[in-house]
Design a protein around this nucleic acid. Sequence first.
DNA 1: TTCGCACCTTGATGTAGATCAAAACATAGC
DNA 2: GCTATGTTTTGATCTACATCAAGGTGCGAA
Lengths: 247, 247
Amino acid sequence: MTDAAAVSTFQEDLKKRCSTCSLRHLCLPLGLDSDDIKRLDDIISQRRKVPAGQHLFRVGDSLRSLAAVRTGFFKVYELGADGREQVSGFQTEGDLLGLDAISGGAHRGSALALVDAEVCAIPFDRLEGLLAEMPGLQRRFHAILSGTIVANQTLMMMLGTMRAEHRLATFLLDLSARLGARGRSPTLLHLPMSREDIGNYLGLKLETVSRVLSHFRDQGLIKVAGRTIEIRRIDALRALVSGVLRH
Amino acid sequence: MTDAAAVSTFQEDLKKRCSTCSLRHLCLPLGLDSDDIKRLDDIISQRRKVPAGQHLFRVGDSLRSLAAVRTGFFKVYELGADGREQVSGFQTEGDLLGLDAISGGAHRGSALALVDAEVCAIPFDRLEGLLAEMPGLQRRFHAILSGTIVANQTLMMMLGTMRAEHRLATFLLDLSARLGARGRSPTLLHLPMSREDIGNYLGLKLETVSRVLSHFRDQGLIKVAGRTIEIRRIDALRALVSGVLRH
DNA sequence: TTCGCACCTTGATGTAGATCAAAACATAGC
DNA sequence: GCTATGTTTTGATCTACATCAAGGTGCGAA
């Protein structure tokens, strides 16, 4: 930090390092000590900007690097046997992209930037090497993989057993919690995705999404202004999800 | 193998070893060389029988070991916020159970033996140690975790976008392929689960499952005799799934 | 063999959400 | 500013599947 060469590129360096990244308590480095994070820094050299509307990767692309979202928002979607699209998730700061490509070596879905985004590329072969040497990183990586499985099971639960209102309430609460964990307001949400994307993710049509949101608005649970949604009675949303308000 | 002590327990040993296990080309050891499999053998000491109708683990149980299914069939299900059940998968020979518990340390779902079953217990802490030392095993383990994510995405696709007939056809084809990979008949299926379990897994009611199966039978696609189903026109089922037969 | 019980099938009816349609609202370009 | 284009809202109608209901089937126990 104090030698001449480092100073000359101080700005870039500061931005590129996990050590100083504001997301290090969410992302891959979570739980690592500073020595370990420095070793992780060594393999994460590349940042990549992805403008809104562009793909980070597409189905069939081979996996070279996992990507950690630095800023922005992605939707990942797959194409079914009959060509229909299914959104499998929305990823934002600190989330990892590309985990589904580890088995098979090629991406199973496409990742589209919903807003201007930036990602850190994590070369997968070098990560594998580091995992073997760093037990803490290995545990963290397995926790992320397992956590992805758990998140998908939550979604399966929604798609399999919940009605439209419960799905939307769960969606809003999940988004609220995730934004909250990232230091954003947990009640004032700026949705980066369309009603159609939300519907696709939740197994609903866009009209149904719109109707349910209007219904929540009429009940005073939320305030809707286009893609900006303010949660006004988060407790009522929670009660709805937990089935207290059956109707 | 040739010393006196080993000979005395030859039968048990033979049964307990991955090295000689008929599932080693499906299960965790897939792709490992014989030296590596021997090291894996060392940490997998326990077999456990689980009679039909009993749980291997329940929600909240802490994770000590992953379990590899040796024989039998399990269903894994979770309970939602409102208490409703969602079957997240059916596991059989060579499948790993407990992956969702790695993040969080406790099981998120319950695993129920649908028929008499036997599993190999894989102590997770010892597995972690071995992963760090054996690159091949690490790759295999990551492929399994990633493959579970991919399998769940397929299910999400079904739940989110497919109609009842497509879901059932996909279910039958998936089961057929899995049994085929295990050396069983890919056309004569003995379902270990009830219509209700199938329906829950697919996001349908048991009556709908029954009706769709009857419909397939009437079309000559399958033969139904209780839980025994014979696939007669697998090509037609595939065509249905791929959307060729839209109607 | 018969009983009891759990599971499955089939039919009649109801309904949540899809589909069809159109108007209101943004947002971007000119 | 106005026009064009995509997104969202709201309404009317339709439908795939759920729900309710009644028999049928198979299997273990006595």
